[in-house]
Nucleic acid binder design. Structure first.
Lengths: 342, 342
DNA sequence: ATTTGTTCCGAAAACGTTTTCGAAACCACC
DNA sequence: GGTGGTTTCGAAAACGTTTTCGGAACAAAT
């Protein structure tokens, strides 16, 4: 145990703790070779500053908090990857919490992070969250927050997102361009913005191409178990006997659930029904048929979100007024087998 | 800003900070209704203790550090999930770092965590790591460490693992039981223990069943890009023209790479070559043919590792001598399509 | 010899808690 | 009215840093 502290070095070198501290931190008013002696001794005693003391004194922790709905999702893993890389590069540590899509948990975790005095918070809102006072409370304490992926428009802070509406619009337009006409949509639950937006994009694309929107063609996948939701609703869809030649799924996972069911009942993809997903998970390249999808740049989202957050942290520290920005990262259609008829 | 602190509450209620602190922490020597007044006021001013000050004073952070090679892996996501759940339950925060399989990074990150004064560290060693002095340094400071998944036997601390050797032995024995005789092994690089163990299990199973081990049948996948490694080596295997009727892959991902290649060159699985993977990633249920594999309980590993770590943290704090344990979690063969001939 | 300027160092306060220890206040009891 | 016991409170030290401010020592310029 017995961690070495400034006092120990000071005693060993024969100077005051002030001098040691200044030497180690590069203050200019320290003689060259006393500095050298101090540094040498610090290394010899392998000194590590006690961050608790530093943090208490400087009132910053060089730590950010991240709250995500779940870690075991390819998309969030990618985001996390981007977050960790950029945070590391900028010298910040990151504390991860998962809300499991629960509002109460999310709220409690925010409080935990504030207690820990993190310098900023990154959060993708839970599906349940429709009250934002806990976020505003953080903002009011001048702790920067940036929302990503699942955001709330009415919260006044920076955000990094994709344009879900446009991406969905593009995906459906792409299907229409391929000649599909009776296009179903497997949508997510009603609360999260991205679920709403993807639905709206779907609807708009139909209307803009002269196809009347038929509410019977939208299936609700709101059990947060995307794969099973896709599977179950595919069954429902097939049994409804409606004329359908393509489906736009809110997620690759539900798309894969759909594919699994269609494969089982030997409905040919894409000959009888085409399927397009959303997110471009690694998995979509290995199933059969390979899934066409919308690429969602998870790594970039995480990366950019941290970047903005740290910028704002620094601005807040220097009391320069911060201008919130919302970055929209581009998506793209990835065409594979599940939508191209030969 | 202006966080409320003990002083503020003390002033508001008209008592000393000592009293406020004791009231809030449940000390018995505080009058019932002064306590009530203090608590009420604390809530009204929504007081959050400054953890930096608390940590400095109490010399513990209620935070653990986790270092994993990479986050964007289904297995590690699962582990992380288990870690976060159990840590949350026990009231600990977790700081995540990814080593990207780099020894130098791992070493630096350990130092970062020690500087942060985490109460304990959970780590899955990078593939490069073959010197353990950085881990021992932590242990010497009486900070508990538990190794999981990729461990080093010679480090003296608790570990939670699966029995890779036995699992591999079982997988290969299973193949032999199914009548396969010329069984290739796609192995990982030479350093990590689990790579070694799986290889040894493979070899032992052959020998125990009277099949002579042929070094030409083991293919080295050591580029840390499992999928491409599997694909490339499958090509190599096929082009080598050897007589092979099954392959045991060190990872589901390399197995999937193999399957992809075999599918492309229209070698029937499992009729011509059977494939079994390792880990039971979600993905293996959705490819075609569905991949038989060895189930590796990621969630449980993370869960148990945290549990032991926190136990040791508490023991260390109370100066009770800690007995290191190594927990071996059970694995099981999951039979799917890629190994069963009809 | 006095002033002015540089260079180098250290005392001390501060960050916000926790916890020890003593003491005031009150009660009860002979 | 002294003794002993209980309840309730607060002063103060401590945790390990950072940073301000002043001052000592010395050199250079007048």
């Amino acid at each position: 145990m017995n961690d070495t502290k400034l006092t120990d070095i000071a005693a060993a070198v024969g100077v005051s703790v002030t001098t040691v501290s200044k030497a180690l931190k590069g203050y200019p008013d320290i003689n060259k070779d006393t500095r050298a002696r101090i540094i040498e001794m610090a290394e010899k005693m392998n000194y590590l500053p006690n961050e608790n003391a530093v943090n208490l004194r400087t009132n910053q922790t060089k730590t950010i908090g991240v709250i995500i709905p779940t870690t075991v999702h390819h998309f969030f893993s990618s985001v996390l990857n981007g977050i960790l890389d950029e945070a590391e590069k900028r010298g910040y540590l990151v504390i991860i919490l998962q809300s499991n899509e629960k509002y109460e948990l999310e709220k409690k975790q925010i409080s935990l992070l504030m207690q820990k005095r993190v310098d900023g918070i990154l959060i993708s809102l839970s599906n349940e969250t429709d009250d934002f006072s806990h976020i505003n409370a953080v903002l009011n304490k001048e702790t920067p927050v940036v929302l990503f992926d699942k955001i709330a428009k009415m919260v006044h802070c920076s955000k990094v997102v994709i344009d879900d509406r446009k991406a969905a619009y593009d995906a459906v337009s792409y299907l229409i361009g391929k000649g599909y006409k009776r296009i179903a949509h497997f949508r997510g639950s009603l609360v999260p913005q991205n679920s709403i937006d993807r639905f709206l994009g779907y609807k708009k694309a139909l209307e803009d191409h002269g196809i009347i929107f038929d509410p019977n063609l939208v299936f609700m996948c709101d059990h947060n178990t995307d794969f099973e939701d896709g599977y179950a609703n595919a069954k429902k869809m097939v049994e409804s006997q409606q004329e359908i030649d393509a489906v736009f799924a809110i997620t690759d996972l539900v798309a894969i659930g759909i594919i699994k069911y269609l494969n089982e009942v030997e409905i040919k993809i894409p000959e009888q029904i085409a399927v397009i997903g959303f997110s471009n998970w690694f998995m979509s390249t290995v199933i059969s048929p390979k899934l066409s999808t919308v690429n969602q740049p998870g790594y970039d989202i995480g990366f950019k979100a941290v970047s903005i957050l740290i910028d704002e942290i620094i601005q807040a520290k220097n009391h320069v007024p911060i201008k919130h920005q919302t970055i929209t990262l581009p998506t793209e259609i990835i065409e594979r087998e599940s939508t191209v008829r030969i």
